[in-house]
Design a binder for these strands. Structure first.
Lengths: 253, 253
DNA sequence: CGCATGCTTGACTGAACTCAAAGTCCGTGG
DNA sequence: CCACGGACTTTGAGTTCAGTCAAGCATGCG
């Protein structure tokens, strides 16, 4: 059984490539505007007015802290501004399942709309900076402009697509291929975030990866070693270098 | 943009769906009102006015026909009024992955919002009756009331939850347990739709089930046989009777 | 009727899990 | 400073489980 303290101490040692300059701020009193949220989400649609729509609260988390917990009342969506997290669902029998690893630009909390409470746990794997979109911004009926709604639709739909894609991606016969695909997808995500796709640091443990891919942590480790020995990637603890993306893709089939 | 209000002069919406044969409709010219959509989705939230929000087009499909295809431009969401379908994504290498089996009350097409085109194929497994929620209804900025948006949020969120749940549900070590869980979930869905949870007919092939659960069709067949021999279920072709739901649940662990 | 499709069952093989041991890194405390 | 402990990782050996291949049966359809 993994406790929060253990996650915190270990995850703190592995900060993502994005170095965080010392932000000076009084307590947590920071806000973001609509335009920043649009940029983070990489929203490519049209909005009527990116500045007048309101302000969004920021929320910072230390590695190991919980962002959302199952059953907590829904109070809005969150956009990851910085850091890596882990979304998981715990079954009635206590078995945990890792659903996703949200990172910069990803949306959190969209599973809370339908039952008005969050249905998954989200914990920070690294120090994190989140932007909250309060439910009032989403559902207030009197708002003249529904730019926020439009953005939310778009972002939620994107998350659905991501989920379906990863879900489909792990339908591969070979477990090694699933691990390779995971690395390729991670690489593409780092690229989309503006980081290097060829060299990155995984924020999660082998156990988390295995849980996510439905294989054991030993299998993940062996797959990493195999890809390393083949010269496709270079593994050093959690730091991954992709030496041949083409070979990695070939390995997926 | 289609002006659905203009068509609302028809008396159709004043009559409950059961009385529709009395209406004078030409061929496929059938419509559904907002209240019927709410009922179908089993929406339990609040709306301001269930009658004035517009009319939705109906669309009927024969078994085997395609409801949506990958790449097709997004033109709205669909609610299943009757029938069973299969949602699948085809990878670049031609490998198909079955994502879900939508049934009465489920939502289709929500993966098309973000890229403005549908990203999965949906085919009818049985004759189907769909209700279309045009994108104009979802996104029209001038609408005074956002009941439709609220409902769509809620429905999309519910589909996300369903997806996450099934995705998590199939993270079981044993393939037999996965099949048992699939049957239990199907049973619960039939119950939610108002049908018998103890006796139902699966609309999909063993191959589709296996694809969805990431096992072979032989494994599905063997699991069915095993559950049958244990007296937990009775299998006769695609007709399933659940003899002991408790035993089925125990088998999932 | 013949054919296609779907389903069942068996035998064999191989891939992934389990169990086990050892190594690495880091934080903590003597 | 260094020893210790804990979490994480790697690697190996044995075992189990599910995939593959193959044959046969049932059903439905033209």
């Amino acid at each position: 059984m993994m406790n929060v303290q253990a996650v915190s101490s270990s995850a703190a040692r592995w900060l993502p490539p994005a170095h965080q300059p010392a932000l000076k701020l009084e307590r947590d009193e920071r806000w973001s505007d609509f335009q920043e949220v649009l940029n983070l989400l990489r929203f490519d649609g049209q909005v009527h007015d990116a500045s007048s729509t309101g302000l969004f609260r920021r929320r910072r988390l230390k590695a190991g802290q919980s962002a959302l917990t199952m059953g907590q009342p829904f109070d809005g969506l969150y956009v990851v501004r910085l850091g890596s997290l882990k979304t998981s669902m715990t079954h009635v029998d206590g078995v945990e399942h890792v659903v996703a690893f949200p990172m910069k630009g990803d949306l959190l909390g969209f599973d809370g709309i339908c039952k008005n409470k969050y249905l998954s746990d989200v914990v920070a794997l690294t120090d994190c900076d989140l932007i909250k979109i309060p439910s009032a911004e989403l559902f207030s009926p009197g708002r003249g402009c529904n730019d926020v709604e439009r953005m939310a639709y778009w972002a939620i739909s994107r998350e659905i697509v991501r989920e379906q894609t990863t879900y489909a991606a792990f339908h591969s016969t070979k477990s090694d291929a699933r691990v390779a695909r995971f690395l390729r997808i991670q690489s593409e995500r780092f690229l989309a975030m503006g980081y290097s796709p060829n060299r990155f640091t995984l924020p999660m443990t082998r156990r988390d990866i295995g849980n996510h891919l439905n294989v054991t942590l030993e299998t993940v480790s062996r797959a990493f070693s195999a890809l390393d020995h083949l010269g496709i990637i270079a593994v050093e603890r959690r730091e991954i270098r992709i030496l041949s993306l083409d070979a990695l893709r070939d390995f997926e089939a």
